[in-house]
Amino acid sequence: GGQSFPEGEDPSVSLFRDYLRLRTVHPEPDYDAALRFLDRIAEELELPLKKIEVFPGRVISIMTWEGTNPTLKSILLNSHTDVVPVYQEHWKYDAFSAFKDAEGNIYARGSQDMKCVTIQYIQAVRRLKARGWKPTRTLHLMFVPDEEVGGYKGMETFVKQPEFHKLNIGFALDEGLANPTDAFTVFYGERNPWWITVHCPGS
């Protein structure tokens, strides 16, 4: 669909709200809508967009901004395109309308997890390009399905494929969480599920 520019709204906010309106919600995410959206962005940014179908209907898209020294390891800016379901009856507004209230709060499934980050990467890259800046290391913006249902049909499988290794990634950024205070939370590790079987032989 066409981009809407409500009067006086920052175009980055309008783009964010457009993306929030795409129903990439489980159990049947409209991934095609996300792919069309990304096609449009890649065209605007004049960056190549590669699509790899990891499973039928599960496509990973990679937008690449080649660095001036492409032999160096690249930087990955990763985000997932899917969102978890909603119980609409508990919402003040339609969870896919991206309603913005008088305080500027934008309500939508995915507003925090993590469509904000996707658009922030895109708009930061757009501004850097417009300024004439060029990266030394190659930048990859990766858009991944399936994260919210475990990642098997997305990242888990993709990292084991040659196409992933060809990206020659040295460092990755991915999602974090909101922080209610003035500080920003940064995650440097992750809790691992660790299953233990305890055998209790009875007497």
Binding site: L76, N78, H80, Q112, M114, C116, V117, Q120, V144, E147, G151, G154, M155, E156, F158, V159, K160, F164, I169, G170, F171, A172, L173, D174, E175, G176, L177, A178, N179, T181, D182, A183, F184, T185, V186, F187, Y188, G189, E190, N192
Partner: peptide, 19 residues
């Protein structure tokens, strides 16, 4: 998804700029 990235030996930071 960072856990899969880290599992193949790539350092990753989880960060969403929301304070």
């Amino acid at each position: 998804d960072s856990r899969f990235i880290r599992a193949v030996g790539i350092p990753a930071i989880g960060f969403s700029p929301m304070n």
